[in-house]
Design a binder for these strands. Structure first.
Lengths: 246, 246
DNA sequence: CGTCTAATTGAAGCATCTCAACATGCGTGG
DNA sequence: CCACGCATGTTGAGATGCTTCAATTAGACG
């Protein structure tokens, strides 16, 4: 039984808060304007003034910023159910772009519809606020990751984050997940050169922490990878019943 | 005529949105529980579960995260009128700490009071939401700063940001500002060693971009500093009438 | 004045980058 | 189905930006 587009959003919000039947029904009424993107395509451009919010349905998307020196920083990664630009509800000009790292399907939701929803349901309003705040928490962790950790720790940390986030969405297996990202993009996300990313990945493989066959990455030693990454999932602020350990 | 504590908050919010008389009056009713902090004191600890929001009244405060390897990353800097943990309204456990970089005065506002305020005034609710989103925008810029820019660019960028943010608050002169931060802290904020910060500052001085007498930093070549930093204030999302250029 | 913190300088080491070549795999068109 | 071409991954070698360690100087404060 295929999951509906609205359910992707509900499933995602369920990972951070309890979504009741009322809210679920309300979310179900949101009008979605669907679009498809090829690998590498821009979904929202830096400088745009969107009048709609974005909902990722399928594929992998990322926020990024370009430096005037032509360097690219990937700011975050987004999966099915993520709404990466609730920002645009209050900030009118995009200070970053959003693009498809893989072929992707996305939906747009008019700002007016979102605002109406939030007026109707203070509870949903809170949940979306919580989502925005968790987003910010992830940014903070990325700052620490890039600012204070070694290349090896950074890459390991990114793998931990993606594994956990995909896991709670049901997009990962017990010990492996499909994560189609190039080494150059890993570099753009961690502030490293692609060459060095390559060497670090080899070192993580040699240490028996991960193993990769194409886009599918197997985590062969989860405690080891967590330790190598200095990873704790606190900053993801998941609902405690998703928090396996706890 | 001294500025009142409530007015500090109003002045701060005025930099990002128009605050009407009604909202101003409402904000004026917020009960503030004042506290003072010595240099280096913790204001909120990582792991805390606050039941109040924080309002910085005087001095310089910073958010930070510690790595298990004992390294510290400063995540953001905060001035008079900033509310650095609106987060705690929705995220119950602090994923980072907040401390006083200088002697500081702060106020606590009960979550209940904040929530009541937001219920009474959707407009204020929006403004606070906007504030949180701008916070996140600044985090994004810091990721790019640390991830993609050279040491020189990073330091210059930080100076530009602080100068502009203090400027719109009326805390800076035309070409200079008081910014009491140690070189070690600049390093923690930019992911650099204190020794290298020192050398970079010297290079910026030698290039005639800045000059420093103690805590007071003079910007001797603003266009030059902006260029050296690859700085644009777009990401601060200031009200356009503060946006001199526009 | 003496003490403590912060700033400065020097020198050596290393993590990571850049450049450049080569290998591999995959999609596409002939 | 093969051959080609392009994107991605891999490897080597040299360069460098930044770190670390250690010592010295300069300021601030009681």
């Amino acid at each position: 039984m295929a999951i509906s587009d609205h359910d992707r959003l509900v499933r995602r919000l369920q990972t951070i808060a309890a979504v009741g039947e009322d809210e679920r029904a309300l979310l179900g009424t949101l009008p979605l304007r669907e679009r498809r993107y090829g690998k590498g395509a821009n979904i929202v451009r830096q400088g745009d003034k969107p009048s709609e919010c974005l909902l990722i349905l399928e594929g992998l998307a990322g926020r990024y910023q370009m430096t005037s020196r032509g360097r690219r920083q990937i700011l975050s990664l987004h999966f099915s159910g993520d709404m990466p630009d609730l920002h645009s509800l209050q900030l009118h000009t995009m200070d970053h772009g959003i693009y498809a790292l893989t072929r992707a399907r996305a939906a747009f939701i008019a700002h007016d519809a979102m605002r109406a929803l939030m007026r109707l349901s203070p509870r949903l309003s809170d949940i979306l606020m919580r989502d925005v705040l968790i987003d910010a928490s992830i940014f903070r962790q990325w700052i620490t990751n890039i600012g204070q950790r070694t290349a090896r720790e950074r890459i390991a940390h990114l793998f931990c984050e993606v594994f956990v986030r995909m896991g709670v969405l049901g997009l990962a297996e017990a010990h492996s997940f499909r994560f189609p990202i190039t080494q150059a993009e890993l570099g753009d996300a961690t502030g490293l050169s692609p060459v060095h990313v390559n060497r670090v990945l080899q070192s993580l493989r040699k240490a028996g922490l991960i193993a990769s066959r194409g886009d599918v990455h197997e985590i062969t030693d989860w405690p080891g990878l967590r330790a190598a990454a200095d990873f704790s999932d606190d900053y993801l602020h998941l609902r405690s019943d998703h928090d396996h350990a706890a």
